[in-house]
Simulated scan of single mutants.
Amino acid sequence: MSQWENSSTARVVAPARPRRLAKVPFVELADGRVQGVVSSGSDLGRVYVSSVSAGDFAYSCSTNNNRPCGGARGSFCKHLLELIGEAQVQYGPERVARYLRIDGDELAGARSAVAVMSAARPPQAGREAAASVFSRFLHQLAYLELAPVLVPLPEMQWFPPTRKKAA
């Protein structure tokens, strides 16, 4: 086990490549899923909350007002494909495949992680995770509205203080 895996802080990983934030403003590997928010291609006021579970590849896609996606009926919709693509840009294809528990041998024979997941005939999952994913996305958006300051944010105070060097 590496040093950072035993620490109480998480290592920040730089994106593999710059992401298209206008299309997929929020993507994360959390709660055993690749999950995030994908902008609608047809309506500027609509976003989709999409997720794919690790292991069984169960997927879910619904609008921000909890209406099911019309394209996610029996296969991955374009929102899920965009989500997986941007997750691979953000975290790298190997890390996303490991997180989704795609075997390296399976991945070597397929063109992509999406090809492996589609061949598995994944079930459509419930939308119970959508609320928490969308809530975390809105929470992140709130940080964009804050004025830049040099003092710590109160909700980030749980980080350990840095030690001052003795003079």
Rank of each mutant, 00 (worst) to 15 (best):
L144H: 11
P68G: 02
N65S: 09
A58P: 05
R111C: 07
L44N: 12
S7G: 10
E106Q: 15
G71V: 00
Y91F: 12
R20F: 10
L29K: 08
G92F: 12
L81G: 06
V149G: 07
Y59T: 02
A125L: 01
R136V: 04
G70L: 00
F137S: 06
K164S: 12
R111Y: 06
G104E: 11
R11K: 11
V52L: 08
S39W: 02
N6K: 13
A131Y: 08
P160W: 01
S132E: 11
V13E: 13
V89L: 09
G85C: 08
P161W: 01
P154F: 02
R19Q: 11
A115M: 12
F137Q: 11
R98E: 15
F26K: 02
G36C: 03
A166Y: 13
R111M: 09
V114S: 14
V52S: 04
F159V: 08
L100C: 03
L144V: 08
V38W: 01
T162F: 02
L138Q: 15
A129T: 09
P123E: 11
Q140D: 14
V89K: 07
Q90E: 15
N64E: 10
R95S: 13
A54E: 12
N6P: 05
V24L: 02
D56V: 00
A125K: 04
Q88I: 02
V12D: 06
P148F: 13
R33H: 13
R46I: 15
V13W: 14
T63C: 00
Q35T: 06
E94W: 10
R111N: 08
Y91I: 04
V12G: 08
A167F: 12
G45A: 07
P160K: 02
L150Q: 14
K23G: 06
V13C: 10
A72Y: 00
V133T: 10
K164N: 15
A131R: 06
A115G: 02
S112Y: 10
E106S: 15
I102V: 12
S39A: 15
S50G: 13
D56W: 04
P122L: 03
G32D: 03
E155N: 15
G126C: 06
V151P: 05
G45K: 14
A10K: 13
F137W: 13
P160Q: 04
R73L: 01
C61Q: 01
S40E: 02
F134M: 01
V13H: 13
A97E: 08
A119D: 05
Q124L: 03
I102Q: 01
V12N: 11
R46Y: 10
W158N: 08
Q140A: 13
V27Y: 01
V89R: 07
R11W: 08
R11P: 03
A58M: 04
G41V: 00
D56P: 06
A147W: 07
M156R: 15
V52F: 11
R127Q: 04
S118F: 01
A113S: 15
F134L: 09
S62M: 07
